[in-house]
Design a protein around this nucleic acid. Structure first.
Lengths: 342, 342
DNA sequence: CTGAAAGCGCTTACAG
DNA sequence: CTGAAAGCGCTTACAG
């Protein structure tokens, strides 16, 4: 024998003995994998309760060849979108008795992405969720072996067979259209200078303009994180003729642009309307209160888990995988007071 | 036999066979638990590499009676403090080959806290971290059995044998002192109407005032989340004689107070200085740029894991637990332009 | 509906 | 330094 046993926590055998049945029967009871005689059911239930028995996930995992858990590979761990999505995933997973492992993919070169994926997979999770908010998610997808249930969260269309994405492009279109409806003849767009996917708010801006037969100008790009440059861009816009409406790709950008506009002597929203995107906590307190668009990351997380769970169940039952699907989670405009009719 | 084997992933036996040694030898190699002849080491290393072998954490956990993982019980999953701390924990855990499980404790009644703790413990994690930013953390602590390595994160002094907390009280003292140093004779304090622990910024405010021999007034409380009430409180303060400096317990509160002050016709910082706490993303963009105080949650998370890991190692080696300890993580003032000399 | 047996992939006391 | 054996706590094919 390896070491002394001295159970501190009850194991299935203890339950079986107390209920006067065999361990497999307890197992079947627990997993609903066979019918159990009513009297035995009762005795088992009572024994579990009396002992405070909780099955060992490790033992179960060893037997099942996989854990009742899912791992999320998160490309931008410090962002609100990530933590809100995580929370949604966790809530949905918990209902199914699944545990959540988080492994972050930030700040990593490609080699390290692979190492982290291997590490996350070492527990043999039943499935994985990859957040494709950043490039690291894309890399992770490449090294995750086939056959393990996967859903891609937050990418563009076509990045995976199973995806849940937010209606970002639609949101951008909506916001732009809103400005157009207010009578503005043109809406300018300021964005960070980084690649955006197909499903981007920026493309939504283009969609709206095209829909109205307006020639789409170049968007104004600002080096990532350089708020001062965004202020400068705002100032420049403020001096330019014919600028009456601006859709900023993020609230931060909107605020910086407003600052620049003021430096150029323009008033918001009287002279120029400015709206943002993301609905950050401070928007309502801003002067003027900033109109924005909110995305429902918590909902995304929940749906992503459910989509993953369907695959997991199909795999466990040995039936066909559900058909490929992409779910789109709607967001919602938050109208405040930073825009006005033209 | 239970089911057909058909190894998709290599197991220790495969490595052993390829390296022409026994499985226990591979195990000892992997865990450094015995000396291995040099030639065998080489063969084993080569075999592992060739096969792309990764030990099964589940099997290991079953044998070791515990998993190489830690679980965090997070009382306020949606807050920045939580996700930043998580990230720090995860980074430190990863270096030790430990996985992180997150179980959130929000929105739960007491009964559900207990169920979640049981669930989190079902994997037999090597240790647990409980975030005591909210009451749920306190409850969780009550139901976590003795003997499992635990560290309390973000509570007050004395909430556990092992704690890491931020220098919040000291931060509050520092901020208040800063205002006093600028020549203000009194500093008022606005806070949310919720219980704050011993280690609170509010107590730091009291500390500073007392230190300077100033009678400590009642702090001004605002119902949680009611920003409009905070604006009203600011307005009231603006009309009151002799108010020259306000330390708001959070940046949101500071901004709302400033709004109220302006409604009362006062200028910030010319007439009245206002500073916040937490250093939120928008502070620098505010008008005026808001002076605040930043806490290092990422660092807290890292230290918390390391403190936990020491206990885990002690327990595994069977040596004495490290002495009880509380580590304090320093924050840092972020001086901007919302305060001025009196 | 139910039990005895074997197996999941590791680790460790035991005996060289 | 190293191997054969037994055990960790479950699950499942097999045979009633």
């Amino acid at each position: 024998m390896a070491r002394t046993t001295g159970h501190s926590r009850p194991v299935i055998k203890d339950v079986a003995k107390l209920a006067d049945v065999s361990a497999p029967t307890v197992s079947r009871y627990l997993n609903g994998t066979a019918k159990i005689a009513e009297d035995k059911r009762k005795r088992i239930a009572a024994a579990i309760k009396e002992l405070g028995y909780e099955p060992s996930m490790a033992a179960r995992a060893l037997s099942n060849q996989e854990m009742d858990s899912v791992v999320v590979f998160a490309s931008k761990p410090d962002e609100f979108s990530t933590s809100a999505t995580n929370h949604g995933v966790e809530a949905a997973a918990r209902k199914r008795g699944f545990l959540l492992n988080i492994v972050s993919l930030d700040e990593s070169d490609i080699a390290s992405v692979e190492a982290r994926v291997r590490m996350g997979l070492a527990v043999r999770p039943a499935g994985v969720l990859v957040y494709e908010y950043g490039w690291a998610g894309v890399e992770a997808l490449k090294v995750i072996p086939q056959g393990i249930p996967t859903v891609v969260v937050g990418g563009g269309f076509g990045d995976g067979d199973y995806q849940v994405i937010n209606a970002e492009r639609e949101g951008g279109r909506w916001m732009t259209m809103h400005l157009l409806d207010l009578g503005h003849k043109m809406v300018f767009h300021v964005q960070w200078d980084q690649e955006t996917g197909d499903n981007s708010r920026t493309n939504g801006w283009r969609d709206a303009l095209k829909e109205q037969g307006i020639d789409v100008p170049e968007s104004i790009t600002v080096p990532v994180g350089r708020l001062d440059k965004a202020v400068a861009a705002g100032k420049k816009l403020g001096r330019r003729k014919g600028v009456t409406a601006i859709f900023a790709a993020t609230d931060e950008l909107a605020i910086a642009v407003i600052k620049g506009l003021r430096e150029a002597g323009r008033k918001v929203p009287q002279d120029i309307s400015v709206i943002g995107f993301d609905d950050m906590a401070f928007d309502a307190l801003w002067e003027p209160p900033l109109t924005s668009y909110t995305q429902n990351f918590h909902e995304m997380g929940q749906r992503a888990f459910r989509m993953l769970f369907e695959q997991i169940q199909a795999k466990r039952k040995g039936v066909d995988m559900p058909p490929a699907q992409v779910e789109i989670v709607q967001g919602r405009p938050c109208l405040r007071a930073s825009e006005a009719a033209c």
